[in-house]
């Protein structure tokens, strides 16, 4: 169990982590999600006592990290796969970590075997591929057979087989009742592995919810409509009480009404439709919406309300390329925002 209370890190004027309070529980994989620069790595470094918090507190099983005797037996972490002396062999790298925490030498061979590096155990780490480096880092995390595991972007740079392996590893570790805390900036990755979700943006907590709830709240479905008689269609929809938003490309998006009903409605008013298609917003879009206003480094061409991914670029937001940080949600409240408010109220 990891408990954060009001954890804050400030670098001069810049706030990297802003009063984070949440708990990471055992038995599930907790995804730690946020865009680049959101403060995920800084938070993880403070968890390990590497960076000193400006304010607030982190507890590992109720203790401060520095109070842990042989900390690798409590918590194993993969922070950066390159945090290894390249001139040292994989075996010696793990051996020096094991010795510092009184872990027997035999365990080094065990974890090398677990991650599949036995064949290259005597090779220098600088010759390792990114994937092998990640495996070595994971071997280091598993070394003390800890109850808590923490991985910072573990699938970065891995091939599909490696990604598959890590997903299964995390699930099986959580299945054994361990606490698994894994960061990512990819919602799609988290959707596959995490049971619980903590989302941060610009160092602030945006969501702390179960994956199932997140999906239920955010897998919004809507119908995309296009018509040459756009103004009349808008009037008709409005009269029928259908909530509608404008997509950037002249199409309309209707919430809460089925495609069948909309088609019949259009037929009754003898409107020509060029498109009538049910859509499902992806979790990735939900995540981007949630973090849109807190993304630190916007690409200038990207409109936060209309991420160009997925078919039809579904948008309920303003669509028009307004300023970079505008909140989505002209047609109906930005549901990311509303949801966020609900979470905070809960």
């Amino acid at each position: 169990m990891i408990e954060l209370k009001g954890l804050t890190k400030r670098y001069g004027e810049k706030v990297a982590v802003d009063h984070l309070t949440f708990t990471v529980r055992p038995g599930v994989v907790t995804g730690f999600l946020g865009p680049n620069g959101a403060g995920k790595s800084t938070t993880m470094r403070m968890l390990l006592g590497l960076d000193h918090p400006t304010a607030g507190d982190v507890r590992i099983d109720g203790k401060r990290y520095a109070q842990l005797k042989d900390p690798l037996k409590y918590i194993g972490a993969l922070l950066d796969a390159k945090a290894v002396h390249g001139g040292r062999s994989a075996f010696h790298h793990l051996l020096c970590l094991a010795q510092s925490n009184g872990i027997p030498r035999a365990r080094v061979h065990e974890v090398l075997d677990t991650v599949g590096l036995t064949a290259v155990a005597k090779k220098k780490a600088k010759g390792f591929s990114l994937g092998m480096g990640q495996r070595l880092g994971i071997a280091g995390a598993l070394l003390g057979d800890p109850e808590i595991l923490m991985f910072d972007e573990p699938v970065n740079g891995l091939d599909p087989e490696g990604i598959h392996w890590i997903r299964n590893l995390m699930k099986s570790l959580a299945g054994q009742g361990r606490t698994v805390f894994v960061s990512s900036h990819l919602m799609s990755e988290m959707a596959l592995t995490a049971d619980h979700l903590v989302v941060i943006g610009q160092g602030r907590l945006l969501a702390d919810t179960s994956m199932a709830d997140f999906i239920r709240q955010n897998s919004r479905s809507y119908v995309r409509l296009r018509s040459p008689q756009r103004e009349r269609l808008l009037d008709v929809l409005h009269e029928a009480g259908v909530t509608v938003a404008e997509a950037g490309d002249g199409a309309l998006e209707a919430d809460g009404t089925s495609a069948e009903q909309l088609g019949e409605l259009a037929a009754r008013h003898q409107l020509v439709l060029h498109e009538l298609s049910p859509q499902q917003a992806s979790l990735e879009e939900a995540f981007m919406r949630l973090t849109a206003e807190s993304v630190e480094y916007h690409a200038h061409t990207a409109v936060p309300g209309a991420p160009g991914s997925g078919p039809g670029a579904p948008t309920s937001g303003p669509g028009a390329p307004t300023s970079g940080g505008a909140l989505p949600g002209a047609g109906g409240p930005g549901w990311g925002e509303g949801w966020q408010r609900r979470r905070k109220g809960a």
Binding site: R45, L50, Y65, L68, D80, G86, L97, G140
Partner: peptide, 18 residues
């Protein structure tokens, strides 16, 4: 300084917080 230039320092201090 090998600890710093390789990034090993983080791994080392996580193992030995004192």
């Amino acid at each position: 300084s090998n600890e710093y230039s390789t990034g090993m320092i983080r791994t080392s201090l996580a193992a030995v917080p004192g």
